[in-house]
Computed example of a mutant assay.
Amino acid sequence: MLPLRRHPVRVLIIEPRLEHRGRGNLTTTRRWAEGLTARGIDVVTAASQNAEELEGQSFDLVHAHHAGRSGPAGLRLARRHRMPLVVSSGGTDIRGPRAFTPEVKDVLRHADLVISPFNSDAECIAGALGAPIPFAVVPRGIPAGAAPTPPEDPRADRWLFSGGLRDVKDPLLAVRIAEAARRAGFDVALDLYGPAIDESLLPVLENTLASSPDRYRGEAPPDTMSDIYESHDLLINSSLSEGASNSILEAWRSGLVVLARRVPGNIEMLSGAPSEIAFLFDEGNLLDPPMRAWLAAAARNRRANARRAWEHVRTHHSEKLEIDALLTGYRRATSRGRSESGPRGA
């Protein structure tokens, strides 16, 4: 069993291959590495394409983040060196058009433990594999920081889209929502931040914004994102497929309310939040009466909602809760007695 409380141990976290630092997977794995290091764990992170370069090093556990992009590299290393394998899932590996590829299924079947932010993912994965798997929930968490204090004075609402420009994030829908809000009488402007991961979307977006108050601001340096969130009032999450969105947590921490598309991942993230700070929309019912009423109330109650959002993160999505659950999962994976035989079924 991993002696996490008595001695430092070595954990290898394999990240998905990343062409852009703005992707949420990198944000998550770096936060885990920092939190685990603070608890006395020796953590090494490696991109999936570089994992083989660590062949000669010794680890007590391999943790592959994303069953599709990192899982195969993690499974190969775990089998070769007879180490326990933890796989974190819950994004495009089990949701969307590229979910549950044969490679993903193979990784999930052989993991000593699969972790995800949501209980519902256990049933989803078991249904795809035809059998239950060792599973644990690790909720997303971030440091809460200081409580935000937005101004109450009447002014235009500043809306934010934060995410890479690619089809799955559907930034054009976010623009359509802002346009519909203005037609309904709301004084809003939308800023879109994120790297142009799918560069073919960029000219389409720029053409759409040509005669609009909305703006694409490009990719912002990570150390400026807190200020960007704090200068806005509302986050739009328009994703076609979503896991546990870091941008939603960052928005709540900064006092923003969240308007999110009704898809798995967003549904679970928003279901436990106060209704004043979270609204799920359907593309076919944009700016219907309930949505207009929610937007109007959000604009009237900025300061109270900012406090509600921050308290929700502090209480339900703290960094401590996340790292505690992650360490519990690591202990469970190693206590299965597989450190001598490698991952399940190997």
Rank of each mutant, 00 (worst) to 15 (best):
T27Y: 12
K320L: 05
T334N: 00
S231E: 15
A298S: 14
V62M: 06
R76I: 06
D153W: 12
S335R: 09
A210P: 03
I133V: 14
F279V: 00
A147L: 10
G265P: 10
V257K: 00
V313T: 02
L12P: 03
H20P: 00
T37C: 06
V86E: 06
V258F: 06
P3W: 00
P274N: 06
I236K: 03
H232L: 07
A220D: 09
I236R: 04
L26G: 05
N305Y: 08
G127E: 15
Y229K: 01
D170G: 05
A189H: 13
A147F: 04
T334L: 01
G91I: 11
D153N: 08
S339M: 03
A136D: 13
A181N: 11
R95W: 13
V62T: 08
I267M: 14
F281W: 12
A210F: 08
S341M: 01
P97V: 01
E52I: 10
L160E: 07
P150Y: 15
S238G: 08
E219Y: 01
P102R: 03
D324G: 01
G145C: 06
N119Y: 04
L209T: 10
G284N: 13
G164A: 13
D106H: 14
A73T: 10
E219C: 04
A144C: 06
D170V: 11
L129G: 09
M83Y: 01
A278Q: 05
G194P: 12
T328S: 13
P290Q: 08
T328D: 13
S226D: 15
D198K: 02
H66L: 09
R69S: 13
H81C: 04
G255Q: 04
I228F: 13
R80T: 09
P150E: 12
D42M: 12
H66D: 13
L165M: 14
S239E: 11
E152R: 11
S120D: 11
K320F: 09
I94G: 02
E53Y: 10
A220Y: 11
V11P: 00
P264L: 08
R176C: 05
T334Q: 02
E53H: 11
E319P: 00
P148M: 09
R95Y: 15
A67E: 08
G185C: 05
G56N: 14
A244N: 12
S275C: 03
A299P: 00
G163T: 06
L205S: 03
L85P: 03
L36K: 07
P139R: 03
T149A: 13
L256M: 07
L160T: 03
G35Y: 12
P117V: 01
R302T: 01
A299M: 10
A144V: 08
D112F: 06
R21F: 09
K320W: 09
A325D: 03
I228W: 14
T334H: 05
N207E: 15
F100L: 05
E340A: 07
F186Q: 13
L259E: 04
E250P: 02
S335G: 10
P221W: 10
S70F: 15
T28E: 00
G56M: 04
R31Q: 14
L113V: 05
E283Y: 00
A47M: 15
T224I: 10
T27S: 14
G91R: 04
P117H: 01
D167G: 14
M291T: 09
L61C: 05
H63C: 02
V313P: 07
L202Q: 12
D198A: 12
S226G: 10
A273G: 08
